[in-house]
């Protein structure tokens, strides 16, 4: 079981400069820190959740430079200079993003542990192209697991957000 040559803790800290929810930050973390741990532990942004820590469940999804990424699979060091958005930055001045409103209207979530990941995936998808069919939405959301809802309420929420965003544009 023991193999001291490969399991020595990796020492040394690194300072990461990036933008998180519109604010420039400089965070000192151990070199091996994942981006999700940096957000949660160093910045206190605990809205980003860790469900599997191996890149399958999607609960930790955030938006980095406009793209939905799994923050458990990205090192903090890789985020140097990037623009990061998390669930905490979705509402503006207390006004919910249309995706949040739509999820509320459609009883999107239950335990809601997966909710931040789903909503960040949905936001990135709709910012990329708001004209999405139900099948496209289901495929885009296919990288996020929910154990409570059977997905119908989440899909309905995203469809409603599509309608809202279309109306607004």
């Amino acid at each position: 079981m023991s193999d001291s040559t490969t399991h020595v803790a990796i020492g040394g800290d690194i300072t990461i400069g990036c933008t998180v929810n519109g604010e420039a930050v400089a965070v000192q973390v151990p070199v091996r820190t994942s981006l999700s741990d940096m957000l949660r532990a160093a910045l206190g942004l605990t809205g980003t959740h860790l469900g599997c820590e191996h890149g399958v469940c999607g609960a930790c999804t955030i938006i980095v430079d406009g793209a939905a990424v799994r923050s458990c699979l990205m090192l903090a060091a890789q985020a140097e200079g990037s623009d990061i958005r998390t669930i905490e930055g979705l509402a503006v001045d207390g006004r919910w993003h249309p995706v949040q409103t739509a999820m509320h209207d459609h009883h999107g979530f239950q335990c809601a542990f997966c909710a931040p990941g789903f909503m960040m995936t949905a936001v990135a998808m709709l910012e990329d192209d708001p004209n999405r069919s139900e099948q496209e939405i289901r495929e885009e959301l296919g990288g996020n697991l929910c154990r409570c809802t059977g997905y119908e309420s989440i899909v309905d929420g995203v469809l409603a957000a599509v309608a809202t965003l279309r109306g607004a544009s």
């Binding site: 942004l45 605990t46 809205g47 860790l50 509320h104 209207d105 979530f109 542990f113 909503m119």
Partner: peptide, 21 residues
Amino acid sequence: TSVKRVEDHRLLVGDGRYVAD
């Protein structure tokens, strides 16, 4: 009636407090 969820006001904005938080 389908009253909208009270819980959403914290859970949809990342303000939940799960044990790891």
